Computed example of a mutant assay.
Amino acid sequence: MDLSGAELYRAPLPHGADPAPLSYDLGFIAEQPLDARRGPDGELTLWFLARPVSGERRPPERPPGRDPSLMVVAPEQTTTRQRVAAYAVVLSDRGLLATQYSDRTAVEGRWGMPGGGIDVGEEPADTVVREVHEETAQTVELGDLVAVQTSHWVGRNPEGQVEDFHAVRLIYRGTCPEPGDPVVLDVGGTTADARWIPLAERRSITWTANWRDALDQLLP
């Protein structure tokens, strides 16, 4: 939509696509995300502040990645899956709330932000509040949707199945007015640990590549 709130375009997000180059191909620059919510039909819609293309170059589009340990797999043995998840960059007077990935993921030991997959019929904002509490035992106040990040790769999921996987991450800002000691309540899931990271120590943490890029964009 534009600054007046008028809808400029509407299009489905195909498997593997990113909203920025998709918008460009439709003649628009998606300048910033505004909201993500479900319509009366239950479908999830992302809203962006947008304007017509005016000489800008097409946003870069990364090619699909591939698990380096994966042997050649026939297409019929690969499952295609698109997963939309919601996360929060949560700040408090104790720092930045971070979660460590467990051995059920391909990035065991690395760190990211709390959040997770959106359940059927669930609003993204409700997902963030629920997931943050499950993964860290913290109660947060949610702010704006500030970024939409996508990844596309072929690899093995925690169950060992080969997937052509498209991750769509909705990233919100959040605050925690009464921070406590983080505790992982969802034991046995994809989160191994949670802690508050002082902002001055942020760059010493081993983040996943996607979260490192997102935090460089969203934090000083």
Rank of each mutant, 00 (worst) to 15 (best):
R57T: 15
M71C: 12
T105G: 05
E43P: 00
P59R: 06
L49C: 01
D18E: 15
G27S: 10
V53K: 01
A30I: 05
Y101T: 00
S69V: 11
A106Y: 00
A11W: 06
L26A: 01
I118A: 03
G42W: 01
A11R: 11
D18V: 00
A88D: 10
T45D: 12
D103M: 13
D35P: 06
A86Y: 03
P75V: 04
A106Q: 14
L8E: 09
E43M: 13
S54Y: 08
S23Y: 10
V72G: 11
R51I: 08
T99K: 11
E76H: 08
V84C: 09
I29G: 03
V73E: 06
L26R: 03
A11N: 02
Y101A: 01
E31P: 04
R51A: 12
D93Q: 10
Q82I: 07
A74V: 14
P12C: 03
G65S: 13
L70P: 11
R37A: 14
R66G: 10
G115P: 03
R62S: 06
G65Q: 09
R66Q: 14
T99D: 04
D103I: 04
Q82W: 04
R58P: 00
L22M: 08
L49E: 07
L13G: 05
G55N: 07
E56H: 11
Q32V: 07
F28R: 03
G42P: 07
A74L: 15
R81M: 15
R10L: 14
P60Q: 15
P52Q: 04
R81S: 13
A36T: 02
Y87N: 05
G115Q: 06
A30D: 04
P60E: 12
D93H: 02
D93C: 04
Q77K: 02
Y87L: 07
Q82V: 04
G95E: 02
P14Y: 05
L46Y: 05
Q100I: 06
A86H: 00
G116V: 08
G65W: 09
R81K: 10
P114Y: 15
L46A: 11
G121P: 07
P52H: 04
Q82N: 05
A106I: 01
T99I: 14
A20N: 02
L46H: 02
R94C: 01
A11S: 13
P52S: 10
T80S: 10
G39E: 04
Y9V: 12
G39F: 07
G55S: 10
T99L: 11
G112K: 00
A98L: 13
T99H: 09
Q32T: 09
W111D: 08
R94A: 12
G39N: 06
R83Q: 14
L46S: 05
Q32M: 05
L26D: 03
P59T: 03
F48V: 05
S69E: 00
P40E: 09
P60N: 13
E122K: 14
G16V: 08
W47T: 04
Y87M: 12
Q82M: 05
W111Q: 08
D35H: 04
L96I: 14
